[in-house]
């Protein structure tokens, strides 16, 4: 009943209103709405970036109400004065935090590189492995196809704590403990990529494949020449999402990597406390850079993908 009311509302009030606007006004409205949302979404990042340009003192003063466990707080009775007021523009722009992070503490850079060593092979590996598997699941017909795929999905849904101890045992047997491979291998063979690419490949009209087969191509050629290029948006999306997931991983390095020198940056950033906030903001800003770059790069491919999919075989 409510949907009826909503429907008629849309039909009789909103629709004419929007239809009444010129195309330009409509576009402007859209932009406005999107802009509003975008600001909301971006605000935490902006906050991180601006705070990273502040000196440590400024941050401590600014964030005093939400910092410090106990002592100074429990002494003065709470009046109504103390709430955090967000400061957007630093009183004094300073790069001291970045200086500290990059120059005085080179360990950050090592950890950054560790993150890279972990993430890049996983992305590359998973794309290759999953594309192959995805092709099999989407284009080929074989008896175990559906049940096998189903198993993939279900296992993928397991939270990592469940497979942690068995993974640990297996890694130990294979002699992989304390090596990056203990994390990279499971990363490469994750089900997510298979899942995603299989979905994308289902889109490819069978007509294309059929045509290629009639032309005498074998499966491998079909795979390489037709299916893969058509999957560009999917692969771009996969790369982006994998990067984000793996760049942020914390629990696995803690357990599988014994050495302190091998820990990635995500582990360090998983526990930030007071007194380190300025550094934390700066480190976070640096930490975000690769992901932002990755996003910009992949976005281009998404666009390319549109153009390609419009082209007829």
């Amino acid at each position: 009943m409510a949907s009826e009311g909503a429907k008629s509302f849309i039909r009789f009030r909103v629709r004419p209103l929007i239809a009444g606007m010129s195309a330009r006004m409509r576009k402007t409205l859209l932009v406005a709405v999107l802009a509003g949302l975008a600001v909301l979404f971006v605000f935490p990042i902006a906050l991180t970036l601006t705070q990273s340009l502040m000196s440590e003192n400024e941050i401590t003063m600014n964030l005093a109400p939400v910092s410090a466990e106990g002592s100074s707080r429990s002494l003065d009775p709470r009046a109504d004065s103390d709430y955090v007021r967000l400061k957007w523009i630093p009183d004094r722009v300073t790069l001291s935090q970045f200086y500290y992070v990059l120059v005085k503490q080179p360990q950050f850079l090592f950890m950054f590189w560790n993150s890279v060593i972990l993430t890049v092979p996983i992305i590359a590996g998973q794309i290759v492995v999953s594309a192959l598997a995805g092709y099999a699941f989407s284009q080929l017909r074989f008896r175990m196809r559906e049940p096998l795929f189903f198993i993939y999905i279900v296992t993928m849904l397991m939270p990592f704590q469940v497979t942690l101890v068995p993974n640990f045992i297996i890694a130990d047997r294979l002699g992989l403990l304390n090596s990056y491979l203990a994390i990279i291998f499971p990363g490469i063979f994750g089900a997510f990529g298979v899942f995603l690419l299989r979905q994308f490949m289902t889109y490819i009209p069978y007509a294309y494949v059929e045509a290629a087969r009639i032309d005498g191509c074998n499966q491998l050629q079909i795979f390489l020449r037709i299916v893969m290029p058509l999957c560009k948006p999917g692969i771009a999306a996969l790369a982006m999402l994998l990067f984000i997931d793996n760049w942020n991983m914390v629990e696995q390095p803690l357990i599988f990597l014994q050495d302190a020198t091998k820990q990635p940056l995500s582990v360090y950033l998983s526990v930030i406390g007071e007194g380190e906030r300025g550094i934390a903001f700066a480190a976070c800003s640096i930490y975000m850079m690769p992901m932002i770059l990755m996003m910009l790069y992949a976005e281009n491919h998404l666009v390319e993908g549109i153009q390609l999919s419009g082209i007829k075989g």
């Binding site: 360990q107 357990i255 014994q258 582990v267 526990v271 380190e276």
Partner: peptide, 27 residues
């Protein structure tokens, strides 16, 4: 079982201790 070799001031010490403890217990 330590998580990093970053040397800290007194205030950072507590957090480093927390991280290490977390790693110690989980591992």
């Amino acid at each position: 079982y330590v998580t990093s070799t970053v040397d800290k001031s007194a205030s950072g010490f507590l957090q480093q201790y927390q991280r290490d403890m977390e790693k110690f217990v989980s591992t």
